[in-house]
Amino acid sequence: MMLREHFSAELVQLQVNLTTLGELVKTATRLAVEALLRRDNILAGQVIENDTVINQLRFRWEEQALQLLATQNPVARDLRVIAAGIHIVDDLERMGDHAKGIARISQLMGDNPLVCPGLPLDTMAQKVCELLNLALASFSNRDANLAGVVGRRDDEVDEMYNRIAAELFEIMFSDRGKVGEANHLLWAAHHLERIADRTTNICERVIFVCTGQMEEIPGMSSRLNSHK
């Protein structure tokens, strides 16, 4: 006889729900960037509208987690999963806000075609979504190694952001007429960069679930400093 079968089933369901929430955030991110680059403000509007679903689900998740805490006395790893999950859904909700932010930017840019085309924002978005995907997989598979690797890959996103920012500054300096749009695109890139940062937070929580250790995954700048 498996003891506490019902609790185990509910805990599994909670983890599945977290992954589902992550999938929604990933979709929102991908589509927000797609809307921005394709100048599709109907799609942007849908991303904005659907952010309320993400927000509601985050609260629903927390409520279920609190009910398990209050009624089931989880200990050890079960406790860590729930405690980490409460932080992770918070990160996911904020990532959803960043995706919404990108969609808002698209709407602010009106219906005009892009005057600074060719920026690798779509590649950056792909990278961000890939890392989020891997972070969620590391959570479902309890894979601390994967979480560590993914967390450190935030550097790749930072590099892309720096390149895009440099390119946009170049455009702003060379053509004053493009300053408005370049500024908007810079903000969009910044949103993506923040989403990746929060992916690193998720990875840190996954490591906590697996090992019980609360540690920050060092970013590139602190790794460089430690070599000095």
Binding site: H6, E23, T27, L43, L57
Partner: peptide, 27 residues
């Protein structure tokens, strides 16, 4: 728009999964 957030098949599957949350009630 084919790939819209509302109409895309992937998104629909996700929404279905989300709707199943309601069935995770303890009762």
């Amino acid at each position: 728009m084919k790939n819209s957030l509302v109409e895309g098949p992937g998104y629909l599957n996700q929404v279905k999964a989300v709707q199943s949350w309601e069935r995770t009630e303890v009762l």
